[in-house]
Design a protein around this nucleic acid. Structure first.
Lengths: 225, 225
DNA sequence: CTTATACTATGATAATTGTCATGTTTTTCT
DNA sequence: AGAAAAACATGACAATTATCATAGTATAAG
């Protein structure tokens, strides 16, 4: 049982507004969990008894479709709280959470979260603002899906991964997702994602080395139509 | 300046948790507004100084796309609070609000809302739950957009309108949207929406009289692929 | 009532995207 | 290192959806 007050991940979400006392309580009841790439944290339609704070790594939130493929609704990196929505609305999960790469998570029982929402006004308002932000992003994604081509969406996925998870010294994306992962994020067939990445390569917008991707011309990639 | 405590619309949202005293304050500062079909309540990228509660009618929340068409993200019927997200996250609007049919709205200054969020814990938690619910719906819509065909999405739009806004005695939808409205909701070209509605007619799933639509075989319409 | 305007309808065609098949390359495991 | 598995790549073709053109129909305004 480690302390929470110096956790970097905590600084990135609503828990930054908790008092020292409240943090001690969280630290006392939390558990640290490790999942390997591909492991399932929870599935669809489950009842959660707590939320998971991403300390290290990235999870994907996915929904299985009728045809057996799954769509990645969003990626959760360091500091993101997984399961918050379900816990707050007291509903079953409608997405599953899967480790996209190896992850370290802190599990916090839901009562700990709900109690703080009821007692700490600053915390509560911060959660509210975060949810509002999430809602804005979800609506933005919806509009992108409705109005933009696969090509545009894939170019945005690449720049998103670059900006959110960074690049190595030699310019490659820090996180190496498979073509299938990209297809699932963009909402297209894996072959289509592969084809368009090949186009981007031919056009000099990106280059690859194995499954590693380097963005060569960011400005032009962002202007793709 | 009318009273709020007996307003039906209020019962449908977080304001149902306000105390009599708080409601009096809201009643004292609110203004009732009327917009005709097609009139704009606010545009994209605006700063809002309050929220709008739908007392009567329906508004659509839309986003203009690069090609000049706009996409309808959601419909706001009786009791829905418009602008709540922007006010809470203290950001500019990213959608515009337009009267889909004639509407009557109550405008409530944002301080009135924010003050109640800070002082009334029950209200605050209710707003939180509503936002969580909205987020769930937005993610659901995103997945539908990614995974379902235009035909499926249109059939869902029809059943949604039927269930949400009801039907007349003779079975026609209470709200008569244009084909263009449906296209905007479904995220397709107007011609495609028209074509598919024609197919539905031929298949006996719906019938029409002028622009009025009647769902003939709900179960089968819901099973459309 | 009639004329203008907006909405609905449908055909023809093009563009985008998905599916299936097949082969190559890369990674992983022993 | 070598075999097996997974991921990547690409062609051929099918299905879906968008776009353009054109015409009919309903609705509102004068």
């Amino acid at each position: 049982m480690s302390r929470c007050d110096q956790c970097i991940a905590r600084q990135l979400n609503s828990m930054k507004t908790l008092t020292k006392e409240e943090l001690k309580e969280v630290a006392a009841c939390k558990r640290t969990l490790f999942y390997k790439k591909g492991e399932v944290i929870f599935g669809e339609n489950e009842l959660l008894s707590g939320v998971y704070c991403v300390r290290e790594g990235i999870c994907k939130m996915t929904k299985l479709s009728a045809n057996g493929k799954d769509h990645t609704v969003k990626l959760m990196g360091k500091g993101k709280l997984i399961g918050q929505r379900s816990v707050i609305s007291e509903e079953r999960t409608h997405l599953s959470a899967v480790a996209l790469i190896d992850v370290e998570l802190c599990y916090v029982p839901k009562d700990q979260i709900l109690d703080n929402i009821k007692s700490n006004q600053e915390f509560s308002f911060n959660v509210l603002q975060n949810l509002a932000q999430d809602l804005r992003e979800a609506e933005g994604d919806l509009i992108n899906m409705a109005q933009k081509s696969v090509r545009q969406r894939l170019s945005e996925a690449l720049t998103y991964v670059s900006k959110t998870f960074g690049e190595t010294e030699d310019g490659y994306l820090n996180v190496n997702l498979s073509r299938e992962d990209y297809a699932s994020i963009v909402g297209t067939a894996t072959e289509s994602a592969i084809r368009i990445l090949s186009q981007f390569k031919k056009e000099g917008l990106i280059s690859t080395s194995g499954k590693k991707i380097k963005i060569e011309k960011l400005k032009e990639l962002e202007r793709v139509e």
